[in-house]
Nucleic acid binder design. Structure first.
Lengths: 132, 132
DNA sequence: CTTATATTTAGACTAAATCTAAAATAAGAA
DNA sequence: TTCTTATTTTAGATTTAGTCTAAATATAAG
């Protein structure tokens, strides 16, 4: 992690929005929230800031298979669980077994650098209303 | 799974391309391969066919966090491993522990319906040339 | 102050995928 | 077969997420 991080006003504002969100916003969500706070940055600036903040370990980029990137201010290792009905994303602290990863490395010869588990299901509030 | 599957010539050709591929092609790849085989279907037809085949369980859609969907004719449960350098996708048969999923269901209250593990790393042939 | 480097901006551009309305095809009924 | 209805395909416009570019601005170093 870079110790010489340059937080321009734009990057700072983007970081603030993410730190103040707990719903894993997309770039679009972030631009919307910045605008609500009176910041009207260029589209590209927000993307550049997100990349810079991600590269420097201040935020995390999540790709949950929706075709959109989401951003997370929670730097602790965790996985995600998305409701198929309402789209809500929950965080899960359990990590998968390191032995499982080692077995896969042995089997495939890959050096595994990162892993992400994506769980899809029905959240408690959507389950209440289901019929099956 | 629907027992009354209607395989139009378009759907059949799309299915064939996927069954004959072992590299998890994207829609773009599939259109390219169809064209090589002399099939020039409308863009939308290929997407409709992919959706139809996926919905009917004849193929699987993979969302590996690249922002593109890939398609897989291997219907057996498995996970995927992508090389950060060359982009090659490998298949992994090991499945994660059912107990792990149960623990998460208990913790979150979600009814988990599907899970996908995405592993990123460096493949054996790219490792040979690395300097770190 | 001057020069070099980094960043932001507006807007054009790209890629993946969806949508739409018309045309074509297939299936079912008489 | 012919008529009617439902399904599928087609071409192309549209949407969405994100990248790229060149000029303008800001910051840092000498």
């Amino acid at each position: 992690m870079n110790t010489n991080i340059r937080l321009t006003p734009q990057r700072k504002a983007v970081l603030e929005v993410i730190k103040n969100s707990n719903d894993h916003p997309t770039a679009g969500d972030i631009i919307e929230r910045l605008a609500r706070d009176g910041y009207h940055f260029a589209y590209g600036t927000v993307y550049n800031s997100l990349k810079y903040l991600t590269d420097n370990g201040l935020i995390r980029e999540l790709k949950l298979g929706e075709g959109v990137s989401r951003y997370d201010g929670n730097l602790h290792d965790h996985h995600h669980l998305q409701c198929k009905i309402c789209g809500k994303i929950d965080e899960v602290d359990h990590d998968i077994s390191p032995q499982w990863l080692k077995d896969i490395e042995k089997e495939t010869g890959f050096a595994i650098e990162s892993h992400q588990v994506m769980l899809k299901g029905i959240c408690p509030s959507c389950r209440e209303g289901d019929s099956g």
